[in-house]
Design a protein around this nucleic acid. Sequence first.
DNA 1: CATTTCACATAAGTATAACTTAACTGAGTA
DNA 2: TACTCAGTTAAGTTATACTTATGTGAAATG
Lengths: 316, 316
Amino acid sequence: MPDRLPPLTALRAFEAAARHMSFAQAAAELNVTPAALSFQIKSLEEHLGEPVFRRLNRAVELTEVGRMLAPGVSDGFAALSSAWRNAQRMNDNKTLTVTAGPAFTSKWLAPRLYEFAQEHPEIELRFSATLRLIDFARDEVDVAIRFGLGNDEGVYSEPLIREWMTPMMTPEMAAEYGTLEKLSQAPLIHDESISFFKQPTDWPAWCRAAELDFDTSHGLRFSQADHALDAAISGAGVVLGRVSLATRALEQKRLVAPFRIGLLTQAQFRFICPEGTQDRPHVAAFRDWVMKEIKASEVFEDGRDLIPATGGALAP
Amino acid sequence: MPDRLPPLTALRAFEAAARHMSFAQAAAELNVTPAALSFQIKSLEEHLGEPVFRRLNRAVELTEVGRMLAPGVSDGFAALSSAWRNAQRMNDNKTLTVTAGPAFTSKWLAPRLYEFAQEHPEIELRFSATLRLIDFARDEVDVAIRFGLGNDEGVYSEPLIREWMTPMMTPEMAAEYGTLEKLSQAPLIHDESISFFKQPTDWPAWCRAAELDFDTSHGLRFSQADHALDAAISGAGVVLGRVSLATRALEQKRLVAPFRIGLLTQAQFRFICPEGTQDRPHVAAFRDWVMKEIKASEVFEDGRDLIPATGGALAP
DNA sequence: CATTTCACATAAGTATAACTTAACTGAGTA
DNA sequence: TACTCAGTTAAGTTATACTTATGTGAAATG
């Protein structure tokens, strides 16, 4: 390093000023007087040997060097800030921030939240429902639960459950359509949330597995798994739904799954956290609790034939 | 921003200490006493509420939070540092740092360096010969000259010259082999530096363009264009060489290019600099000078047939 | 087994960087 | 013309960062 950094407070003042394009606002953000900020900018300019701001009558604008300097400095402080917040969060074992997809959040996590709070009153769970992939270093998240094929590199990842799908409906509907013979008469609900897999797990695939043959093209279509389940719960039809998301509804008999045949997807739920954090007390507590709950819902697999989804091309 | 950053000097002390895994070395790097550094770390730990280092008998090691914090902090300071150096470099219009491939550097830039220095005594040119793609924000480079297909996004890019290739040899060799009839007898030199293009510009391609048909598989092979030219200059054979790199040798009659047929490559030389810096005085001066020199060497195109390289597959 | 050494911690004192208050400038605004 | 607004400048204050000097404990040394 030939030339060392200028005073860091000066850099920070510059960053804030460049962001606000105003010394006064920057000063307010940093809880100092405008005079102090003016002084800091001046100090930075002395170190650099050239102005970074052009002072206009009632405003300031960045000079060429200023424009060059601002993004990098901003990135730098963002990185510091993020690292610091992460360290603070890690230090804090009162709250645990969990991210999961909207369906898992609403259909699995939320209904069980009360029980978790009873078992671990010392941990305050926070949720962040999002589908986008997570970057633990950037986002402020302790653990993630993701669904998919699972190439989790550089993170701690533990498979939770292999998802399978089976037709589900209200008990009332089951009375009418709950046999293989009558199923073809039922209104169908299509869950297209996982249609991106190579081996489709849709109505045609299930019918092949169950050795049925009827037209499945009609019916309601949903792009989110939880919406498809909600539709079935409200009696709109028979959904080929993801069982793990429906366990609560099955337990409460709001849905029944009358058929023996289940379609095993390629995808899994995984428990993911930054490498090395899996043994932190509240992370481990949450993982153990999730595992236990998952295990408890495996009773619905009893007596079923879970058939791996095969490519639609094999049996057109 | 709920929680503000800790004192930045403390963070910097931590970064250096984590890098060296030693307070003493970190103190030396920052030009302070070990006592000061110890105090800074302590201050950081007070702000965080937890130790970041575990003090051992004769060493220190990072705690879990420390390990979590270190990479991010390091990245942050690296970003600040890089941004600051770039600003300093931009402020400096004494030196101009240019990066180019080894061949262009040795065969084009270096021979003309003296002339540039005469025209612009106020600019001190520095070279960085490398093939790897450049990132102006990270590397300390003002302008780059690159050869290739040129998908330059997010940077200022100006095409310099469309490269073409033609057989070249010493005048002595030309006396013996400098006709289309005798060429097949000549020892060949293969420049394989641009063999990665879809449309090859090699001896078979040139022969097709010149409507010749003889075995071209023999001869010396070089992976660097300048080495192939050097071999030809030393009389080792006839090279199908890149003309732009050979202009000096052609001017000095150390090489001659006796054939009318030239093979136009798909690739271009481009002048590249960060968007917005193309009008800085010494950048513009360098670009104008390069353009002028390039123009001057276009005399070698006079009276030639420059034929675009076609796919080898078309005429196998 | 004492002795030295090494790496860091601590205490007290000091220099200086960072900040505040208060007065100033200069152009737009009422 | 006076007022306001955004930034500057000057003088004085505070608190941060630093130094010197001394202390501590465990490994290394003989």
